[in-house]
């Protein structure tokens, strides 16, 4: 296993884990079906990109985007996180206040499709369909990004972000606040009747999720150094939902497991298949990627049917000093 391969795998795994932890807070813990989750990752990536890049007149002006501030690390990543959080405010304001939960889901799905179409068509705004290229890797002014040590540094910083996201997610999930979120997920009206303000709870967790999703976008764009509408089409969100459903809704460890099994797993399978020409050239062009999407769909439906609680179900909280259960 060469370094490039290992680093690539680890950074993708880190980004997917962070994204899944954020989506688990929204969907698994709070019951918000955020079908536009990938948009929050994308806005974080775009924000981190334009914060770290020079103005678009540099490099001969072959691409067009707004901003270009050449800010040093870690400002672009923080900016990415903040962009994700800021986007959550107007979106949440429209979607989360009055609408019934299934309408929230479709409104967010539509938002995801439309946001992608708008960015694709707006050439001058964020590079349009071609996207943005030559995003400088963080700290590249000080360390040569082409060295092996830089690659491991990137994995290290990503790992720190994973730990931060996990600590945040764990503290929320295991706290009385997390309990309120779960109560709202279970029965919103009853939660209201015991003094919870569901709109405030949802808005807050939507923003927290947006912040973390934005951070994941910042990490990813610093690594792959390009960003375009084709990498954040709405089915990308469905992969993350598949991860949460497979891993176990409401369980952070489940979210991590799901991230490793589904998005990372499928990424690896793709690469494996592309490396074996006999399989990659099977059938009409696009057959293998298309079948992977079918597999994602089957995975969601299969788990919802046979094991809706996932591989690692949400844990039942037993408090210290609890009487021993009769059936044990």
């Amino acid at each position: 296993m060469n370094t490039y391969y290992a680093v690539n795998l680890l950074v993708y795994a880190g980004v997917d884990i962070i994204a899944c932890l954020a989506l688990n807070l929204q969907f698994g813990v709070s019951g918000i079906v955020n079908f536009s989750f990938i948009v929050f990752q994308a806005v974080g990536a775009y924000a981190a990109a334009v914060l770290s890049m020079p103005p678009d007149t540099a490099n001969g002006g072959f691409q067009h985007y707004i901003g270009g501030y050449e800010l040093p690390f870690p400002i672009p990543w923080l900016g990415g996180a903040i962009a994700g959080g800021l986007l959550a405010i107007p979106v949440g304001f429209v979607v989360l206040r009055k609408l019934r939960s299934d309408y929230q889901a479709i409104a967010l799905l539509v938002l995801s499709v439309i946001a992608n179409a708008v960015i694709t068509n707006a050439d001058k705004f964020l590079g349009g369909a071609a996207g943005i290229a030559l995003v400088p890797p963080p700290l590249s002014d000080r360390i040569d990004p082409n060295t092996e040590s830089y690659q491991y540094l990137y994995v290290g910083i990503t790992a720190v972000c994973v730990v931060i996201a996990l600590v945040v997610a764990n503290r929320i999930v295991n706290s009385p606040y997390g309990r309120s979120l779960r109560a709202m997920r279970e029965r919103e009206l009853a939660a209201t009747a015991i003094g919870k303000n569901p709109v405030q709870l949802k808005m807050t967790i939507f923003i927290v999720g947006g912040l973390i999703a934005g951070l994941s976008g910042g990490i990813l764009v610093g690594f792959i150094q390009v960003w375009a509408p084709s990498v954040w089409l709405y089915p990308e969100t469905i992969i993350l939902f598949a991860a949460i459903i497979v891993g176990g809704r409401g369980n952070n460890i489940g979210a991590i497991l799901g991230a490793l099994l589904v998005p990372v797993g499928f990424e690896e399978i793709t690469r494996f298949l592309n490396n074996s020409p006999s399989i990659a050239n099977l059938g009409p062009p696009g057959l293998i990627p298309a079948l992977q999407w079918v597999a994602i769909g089957l995975l969601i439906i299969g788990f919802l049917w046979f094991r809706p609680e996932g591989v690692r179900p949400e844990s039942r909280r037993v408090f210290e000093g609890a009487p021993v259960r009769e059936d044990r």
């Binding site: 309990r179 779960r182 109560a183 029965r187 009206l189 009747a193 409401g250 039942r316 909280r317 408090f319």
Partner: peptide
Amino acid sequence: SEFARLTVLE
């Protein structure tokens, strides 16, 4: 109108 996936104590 219990919160089904919370324990009784919760």
